[in-house]
Amino acid sequence: MFVVAVTLTLKEGAEAAFMPLMTENARLSRETEVGCHLFDICVGENETGAREVFLYEIYTDAAAFEAHLQTRHYKSFDAAVSEMIATKVVKTYDEVIR
């Protein structure tokens, strides 16, 4: 399994417009991508009080994640939210221990 952890800090006032787009992207990823096994969205405040979105995604392998980045729904989502995001940190992990 291949894990992707994304931390997004939203610009002030962006959450209301961002979240419907985020949930739709996650739904389409889970429902249409064979290699996407999990796509969780967590929302809270970071240490500065800014709204933060944490994504926890599990794919079959790195190739499945790369395929996700090429989907129409991801590209549409990415273009629509680019101006709503203040910072974005993506980390990947290639091993899941249970």
Rank of each mutant, 00 (worst) to 15 (best):
T23P: 10
A67L: 02
F39Y: 15
V53S: 00
A50L: 04
I85H: 02
G35E: 00
L10M: 00
I85L: 10
V34P: 12
S82L: 06
L69N: 11
V53A: 02
V81L: 09
L28I: 11
M84E: 00
V81C: 08
R30H: 04
D40K: 07
M84C: 03
T60I: 08
F2M: 12
I85N: 05
T9Q: 01
E33Q: 14
F65Q: 08
G13R: 02
F2K: 02
A86W: 01
K75R: 13
V3S: 14
C42W: 14
Y93F: 11
F2W: 13
T60V: 11
V53Y: 00
T48D: 03
T92S: 15
G49L: 10
T87H: 05
Y93D: 11
A80G: 01
A62W: 03
E66G: 08
A50D: 15
M22N: 07
G35Q: 02
F77E: 12
A67M: 08
E24H: 09
S76I: 03
T71F: 12
V90Q: 11
G49E: 15
T32I: 07
F39W: 05
A5G: 11
M84Q: 04
A79V: 03
G35K: 01
T9I: 00
E95R: 12
Y56S: 03
E66S: 13
F2G: 14
M19W: 13
R30L: 14
A26C: 14
M1R: 09
T7W: 12
Y59G: 02
E33F: 06
G35P: 00
E47W: 02
A50H: 02
S29C: 03
R51D: 03
I41L: 15
F39K: 05
E12R: 04
R30S: 13
H37I: 07
E33R: 13
S76P: 04
K75A: 03
A63I: 07
E15H: 15
A14L: 07
T32W: 10
N25A: 00
F18I: 00
Y93R: 03
A5I: 15
S76N: 13
Y93M: 12
A5E: 12
E83Q: 15
D40Q: 13
C36S: 06
T71H: 03
Y93A: 13
D78E: 08
A64W: 01
S76T: 03
F54L: 14
K75V: 05
K91Y: 08
T87M: 04
K11S: 10
H37L: 14
D40M: 08
E52Y: 02
F54C: 10
R98H: 11
T7V: 11
Y74F: 15
Y93C: 11
V90W: 13
E33H: 12
T87R: 06
D94P: 00
M22H: 12
F65P: 00
M84D: 01
F54S: 09
E66I: 09
V90K: 10
E15Q: 08
H37S: 08
A5W: 08
A14T: 03
P20M: 11
E24Y: 13
A67R: 09
D94G: 04
V6M: 12
M84N: 01
E47N: 04
V53G: 01
D40L: 08
H68I: 07
K91L: 12
A14Y: 02
H37W: 06
G13P: 01
F18E: 00
T60G: 15
D78S: 14
